[in-house]
Design a protein around this nucleic acid. Structure first.
Length: 280
DNA sequence: AGTTGGACCTGACTGC
DNA sequence: TGCAGTCAGGTCCAAC
C-alpha cells in the first residue's frame, strides 16, 4: 500500500513529468472518489484550465499545487490500492481508473484505485496544513521538526501499542502497516508494547529506525510485496520488499535468528508481524 | 481526550 | 463449478 516512500517516489516522478503542464480536462470516472469533499462541479472548476506549478507531498498523500493567482491544491489520498500513472492520451483506460486528468504536452495523469478506498480533494489554497484534513497532522518524519524529543513527548501522552501509535498520522505523517512493522523490528521492539513502557533508549532506537527504514524505502522506490499492487508513475515495481524482515512473513524464519515470525491481530482484524526472539 | 471497533471497498483466496 | 465467507488496511465515524 502506498505509504510515505511510495508517495515520495510518485512525487519525484510527477515533478519530472508534469510540472508546468496545464490541466485541460478532468474526467471523473467514479464520482465516489470525491467523497463528500467536493461536488464534481466544484472539482472541475478548481482544476480545469489551471497550471501545475509544483508537486508536493504530505505524509502518504501526493499533492499538486495549481496556479498562484487563484491558488488551488489537489490532494491524492491513495488509500490501499491507489496508483498514479502518467500515460499518453490514447493509452487504454485501465480497469479501476477513477479520475483522468488530460494535460497539455500530450500527457494524461490517471488515478487508478481498484478498491476505491482512495479519494481526491481540491482546496482553494496552497496552505494545505491549514485545511481540516491536515491541521492535526504530525511532523514529516524526515524533516528537522521530527526529533527524538518530539517522539518521546508524543509517547508520554498516550498508552496505545507502539505499532498503533506509529501509524497515527497525528503523531507522525506517512507510516502505515508495512513500515510500522519494519520499524519495530529494526528497533528491536514488539509492536504490541504499550508506548507507556518505552524507555528513553528504546525511543531513541525507534526514532532512528523510522528515519532509516523510510529513507531506505525511498531509495528502493517503495515496496511492491506479494499482494501489493503498488507501482510507480511508470508502472514499475519498488524493491523494498527485498529488505523486509517481518511484513507478511508469518511463519517464515526470521532473517536474523531463524525463529518463526509471528502475526498478532490488532484492532479491526489487522495484523502486526514480529519476531519473538529479536523484539522485546 | 484517548482508544476501540465497525464500515467502506474489491479482488484473491478458502472451504463446502 | 459455484458460491458464500474471509482477508487485506487507510481513513472516517460513532461509542466507550
Amino acid at each position: 500500500m502506498p505509504e510515505l516512500p511510495e508517495a515520495e517516489t510518485i512525487r519525484c516522478q510527477l515533478e519530472e513529468e508534469i510540472v508546468g503542464a496545464s490541466i485541460r480536462r478532468l474526467d471523473l470516472h467514479d464520482r465516489r472518489v470525491a467523497r463528500a469533499h467536493n461536488s464534481p462541479k466544484e472539482l472541475t472548476s478548481l482544476v480545469e484550465g489551471r497550471r501545475i506549478v509544483r508537486v508536493g507531498r504530505r505524509g502518504k498523500a501526493p499533492l499538486l499545487f495549481l496556479d498562484g493567482k487563484r491558488p488551488a491544491t489537489l490532494v491524492f489520498r491513495l488509500g490501499m490500492t491507489g496508483l498514479l500513472r502518467v500515460v499518453p492520451p490514447k493509452a487504454p483506460v485501465d480497469k479501476g481508473t477513477v479520475v483522468a486528468l488530460a494535460l497539455s504536452g500530450r500527457k494524461h495523469l490517471r488515478f487508478i484505485d481498484q478498491r476505491r478506498l482512495g479519494s481526491l480533494v481540491a482546496y482553494p489554497t496552497h496552505d494545505v496544513d491549514a485545511t481540516p484534513e491536515f491541521e492535526h497532522y504530525g511532523p514529516e518524519p524526515l524533516s528537522e521538526d521530527f526529533t527524538p524529543g518530539y517522539l518521546k513527548n508524543a509517547f508520554s501522552r498516550r498508552s496505545a501499542r507502539v505499532g498503533i501509535v506509529l501509524m497515527d498520522q497525528r503523531v507522525i505523517a506517512g507510516i502505515g502497516k508495512i513500515y510500522a512493522d519494519e520499524v519495530c523490528f529494526r528497533a528491536g521492539i514488539r509492536p504490541g508494547r504499550s508506548v507507556r513502557r518505552i524507555s528513553g533508549p528504546m525511543c531513541a532506537r525507534l526514532w532512528e529506525a523510522i528515519r532509516e527504514v523510510l529513507s531506505e524505502g525511498i531509495e528502493c522506490r517503495g515496496s511492491s510485496a506479494r499482494d501489493e499492487t503498488y507501482r510507480d508513475v511508470y508502472g514499475m515495481r519498488g524493491s523494498f520488499q527485498e529488505r523486509m524482515y517481518v511484513y507478511q512473513r508469518t511463519g517464515e524464519p526470521c532473517r536474523v535468528c531463524g525463529t518463526a515470525i509471528r502475526r498478532t491481530a490488532i484492532t479491526g482484524g489487522r495484523g502486526m508481524h514480529w519476531c519473538p526472539e529479536c523484539q522485546k
